[in-house]
Simulated assay, not measured.
Amino acid sequence: MSQPATVSDLLAIMARLRDPQDGCPWDLKQTFRTILPYTLEEAYEVAEAIEEDDMDALRDELGDLLLQVVFHARMAEEGDHFAFADVVQAICDKMIRRHPHVFADADLRTDAELHANWERTKAAERAAKRPAETAGALAGVARALPALARAEKLQRRAGTVGFDWDSIDGVFDKVREELAECRATLDEDAPIAARLHEIGDLLFACVNLARHMGVPAEQALRTANGRFERRFAHVEAGLRATGLAPGPTVREEMEQLWAEAKAHEAEGKRG
């Protein structure tokens, strides 16, 4: 029986694939930028496996994501920037530093105390990386994040320095305000730039509402996308069963099948 594979085995495989003499031509021509789309894709596939409660898929997707980390680390090592061991060292140091109540003698017990300490530590880390005059509260929020996730993170950061709503009532009022302004751009036949502006404000306000309700906005929308896909698949299947196809002429039938799909979901939740 063969021995279980280790991270060292994976590092050796990647080194072999990137060997200038005998490696894989495709792997050899890759760069950080060309691999980046695959890294993002694998992260989303991990999220999908979690959302579907598919543990077999999660095992495989975590492996694919780990491969991305190893790939980037290998290219960095070839460029004399850092190696995989440095990546591991950095995250170990960070986790110990951010958990003084576990690895030191800090007395942090409540969720509020833990969160405040986490944010203070992260702020100190950001300040250490940037000159004091540029190390603002919003510094370091990755621009490559999905827009909803980035909006939520920007809002949380602003909240740590007191720039936040006192209660969720104000957030509901803001959503209603932004919705009315969106309607006004339509009623006034405003140019697309104005509509884009107001829709952006509305989405930002909705993210703020999700945050105050304790709901990750990105996950909420991903879940809504999944519901829409399932329900529309039911609509298409129902139409096919009667020899029909989606289209404006069968709008009533589609609405009925949509309501049926929603009812089935509700029954499943109660069951």
Rank of each mutant, 00 (worst) to 15 (best):
M75D: 06
V46D: 01
R230P: 01
V161F: 05
M213N: 05
E265T: 10
A90W: 03
V70I: 08
Q155Y: 01
A184N: 09
A245N: 11
A5P: 08
A127V: 04
A237T: 08
C92L: 15
R195Y: 14
L138I: 06
G140S: 05
T185N: 06
T34L: 07
P191M: 03
G271C: 14
E78V: 08
M213V: 09
G247S: 00
D54G: 00
R251T: 07
H197C: 09
L203V: 11
T6W: 03
Q89K: 13
I35T: 13
T34R: 06
D60Y: 08
A112F: 09
A104H: 12
A217M: 02
A112E: 11
F84V: 02
R211G: 04
A12I: 06
G238I: 04
L40G: 09
A158G: 02
K122F: 07
L114S: 03
M75Y: 05
R251I: 08
G268F: 11
A224Q: 11
A73T: 01
A205R: 04
A128C: 03
L114R: 05
T185I: 01
E51C: 07
R240A: 10
F204E: 12
L244C: 02
A259S: 06
E218P: 01
L148D: 01
V7Q: 13
V102I: 10
E188K: 13
G79F: 13
K29Q: 12
A220H: 05
F204Q: 07
L257G: 00
A128K: 03
A194N: 05
K94P: 02
F172L: 09
K29H: 07
R222Y: 09
F228H: 15
E45D: 02
A139M: 10
G79C: 12
D9R: 04
G247W: 05
T39W: 13
L28N: 11
R157E: 07
P131W: 14
L65H: 00
T223H: 14
T39I: 09
E178P: 00
E61C: 01
K174E: 08
